[in-house]
């Protein structure tokens, strides 16, 4: 399973502990995570289920390219980081 980590800044709003999560792409990984943490969804995704404007997601050191559909591939050995982007100030 992929290892999923979240920015420390989100923790004071909604607890998002690191987790081992299954899924073949970023969408699937996040959806599995949200199953046990539904409050976190709106902190990461906008109303159209795309990545929020000022959130960035890295998979194995690469920023994801498909912020709309989150189709970037994930493997069972992937490490995923969800950060707040510097663009948001």
């Amino acid at each position: 399973m992929a290892k999923l980590h979240f920015t420390a800044n989100i923790q004071r709003h909604v607890e998002c502990p690191s987790a081992d999560v299954r899924g073949d792409d970023v969408r699937a990984v996040l959806e599995h995570f949200f199953e046990n943490n539904p409050l976190a969804r709106s902190y990461i995704l906008d109303d159209q289920a795309s990545v929020r404007k000022h959130i960035t997601i890295f998979v194995d050191g690469q920023a994801i390219r498909d912020r709309l559909r989150l189709s970037d591939r994930v493997t069972s050995t992937s490490t995923i980081y969800v950060f707040q982007a510097l663009s948001g100030g």
Partner: peptide, 28 residues
């Protein structure tokens, strides 16, 4: 308005504030 993390609504209750539902737009 959490900026990076979007807008939220909180409600006060007997135990203090709690986050409640967020007005969410339908799928376009």
């Amino acid at each position: 308005d959490h900026g990076h993390f979007g807008v939220k609504v909180h409600r006060s209750g007997d135990g203090g504030w709690e986050e409640v539902g967020k007005p969410t737009y339908p799928q376009k």
